[in-house]
Design a protein around this nucleic acid. Sequence first.
DNA 1: GTCTATAGCTAGATAGAC
DNA 2: GTCTATCTAGCTATAGAC
Lengths: 193, 193
Amino acid sequence: MGRTAGRSPEETRRALLTAAGEAIRVRGIHASLDEIARFAGVSKGGLIYHFASKDELIMGLVHAELAAFQASVDAALDPDDTAPGRLTRAYIRAVLTPAGDEARESLALITQLMTLPAVAEVARADAERIDAALAADGLPEDVLALVVAAADGMSSAPLWGASAQTPAHHRLAERLLHLTRHPALWQDLDWPR
Amino acid sequence: MGRTAGRSPEETRRALLTAAGEAIRVRGIHASLDEIARFAGVSKGGLIYHFASKDELIMGLVHAELAAFQASVDAALDPDDTAPGRLTRAYIRAVLTPAGDEARESLALITQLMTLPAVAEVARADAERIDAALAADGLPEDVLALVVAAADGMSSAPLWGASAQTPAHHRLAERLLHLTRHPALWQDLDWPR
DNA sequence: GTCTATAGCTAGATAGAC
DNA sequence: GTCTATCTAGCTATAGAC
C-alpha cells in the first residue's frame, strides 16, 4: 500500500473536490492549493497529481456542482406527477426545500467561481439548458416567469445574508407550487390593459 | 501644478473607486492594485496615497456601491405616490428598470466583493436595513414577500448569464407593481387551506 | 500629490525522493 | 500514489525622490 492513505484514487479525487468547495466557499476563490490539499488530507504535491493545475481543479469542481444541482432537480421530480409544470415544480422544490440547502450552498459557491471567465461560460450554458427545459414544461410563459423569478429570488436571499425562511416565505413557496397547477388563477387576474 | 494630473483629490479618489469597480467586475477580486491604478490614470504609488491598503480601497468601493443603490431607490421614489407600498414600488423600479442597469452591475460587483468577510458583514447589515424599511411600507407581508422575491429573482438572472428581458418578464414587472397597488388581488385568490 | 524602486511575502508549479 | 524541496512569478506595501 506504500504511501497511500488507504483510499482509492476516486475517493481521493472526490475528497479533493469536496475540500476545494468547502475552502472556496469559506475563503473565496483565493483559497490556496495548500489549504485545499491539507483539508483533504493530502499534500499539495498529492493534489497536483490528481489535478494538474488549479484551473483543472476548479473546472472539475464546477462540473461536479452543476451536476449535483441537476441531480437535486431530478430527485425532486415526482414520478406520479405527469401534469404540465412537473419539471417547474421539481425546480422550485430543489431550489427552496430545506433538503435543498446544498442547492443554495452550491449557488453561493458557483457565484464565487464565476470570477473566472471559463466558469462563467460553462454556467451560462447550463442556465440556458435549464431555461430551455423549463420553457418546454407546458406552463404559460407568464406563470413560468413569475414562479421561477420568485423562487430564484427567495433562493438568492441568503447570498445577501438575508433570510427567506419567514412564514410568509413558506406560504409563498406553497403558493408558487399551487400556481403551477392552476395557472389560470394568475392569468385570469384583472390585469391592466 | 507639479506632477498632479489636473484633478482634484476627490476626483482622483472617485476615479480610483470607479476603476476598482470596473477591474473587479471584469477580473474578479484578484484584480491587482497596479491594474486598478493604471485604469484610473495614476500609478500604484498614487493609489496607495489615496487608499492606504487594498482593504481600504475595497471597503471604500463597497460603501460607494451600497450608497449608489440606495440613491437609485430614492431616485425611483415617486413624490406624488403617497399610498402604501410606495417604497416597495421604488425598490422594484430601481432593481428592474433599464435605467437600473447600474443597479444590476452593482449587484454583480457586490457579489464578487462578498468574498471578503468584512464586506459580507456590511452587505448583510445593509440588506437588513432595506428589509426593515420595506416591511414598514404598509403592504401585507404575503404580497411584499412575493413582489420582492420576484424582483430579486429577475434582477439576479444576469448573474447566471440568463436574460430577464423577455416580454414575459416585462409584463411580470408591470404586474408586480400593479399588485403593490391592489394587494387584495393576490390575497383573495383561492389558496388551499 | 504622484512617482520609482524595492523589500518581503505568498502562491502555483516542477523535480525527484520514497 | 504521495511527499518534500525548490524555483519562479506576482502581489502588497514601504521608503523616499521629485
